[in-house]
Design a binder for these strands. Structure first.
Lengths: 119, 119
DNA sequence: TAAACATATGAATATATGTTCATATGTTTA
DNA sequence: TAAACATATGAACATATATTCATATGTTTA
């Protein structure tokens, strides 16, 4: 009863054809979630700093921590997130792990994002 | 004392020249935060859906809510966030507010992001 | 092989964020 | 002008997330 009233009320102003047409051309839900995850990963200052640094050259965890002035543990945690999104990779050299960019889309994404930021 | 020890210990493995060189070419902190805010805004499925819908055509709040199956209140809150980032704008027509994209960078950002998602 | 080292990882905590619910605002219509 | 309507907004709440701290892992060196 109440549900029905709500539904009627909620739908009173909807332009149905329009909604259906737009709905038909929307990306699938998995695509949306995957894309959101990617952007969410880029949406943190610490991770952005890491990526900007790695855009220049490969660096070990220790150097990254010194560079962006965050604890090595925090850096390590964030690198894990970036690895999960296949944005960075690493190679081992003795005791050190050297991280580098694993995806050139980051460069174009940053360029586009910066254009937006600069309005 | 202890601080000094920590500092020495923490810096023992740092490749100083490298760090300084990279640091010199990093974007400013305001730029990083602004860019992070932009990506963070794009990092939510609800907001992504709204933007994908608005990429097709302008729509009123009511239609957007029906389209992405979220309450009108939630839509309104998220549109506010998008407005704050100057990603959408609106015009009033009688009782309705019609929202539309306010920035074409969104299209290129989505295109790049999707390329990454598709590996 | 034990100690030192570089890094990873899990748990804990504090903060940020998204949705809901209740209410306010601005516009049209009766 | 009062009622209906479309939307906005603030507070509350539950969940997600970033950092810290303690500890574990894998590598080198003494």
């Amino acid at each position: 009863m109440i549900d029905e009233m709500n539904e009627i009320c909620a739908e009173c102003c909807i332009h149905e054809e329009k909604v259906k047409a737009v709905q038909a051309d929307m990306p699938g839900i998995e695509t949306i979630f995957a894309l959101a995850d990617t952007f969410k990963t880029l949406g943190d200052p610490t991770r952005l700093k890491l990526l900007f640094a790695l855009m220049q050259q490969e660096l070990c965890v220790c150097d990254l921590a010194a560079l962006i002035e965050v604890s090595e543990s925090a850096v390590s945690h964030q690198l894990r997130v970036l690895r999960g999104q296949k944005l960075v990779r690493f190679r081992r050299d003795g005791k050190n792990l050297y991280y580098s960019l694993d995806d050139d889309h980051v460069r174009t994404l940053f360029a586009q994002g910066l254009e937006h930021v600069r309005e």
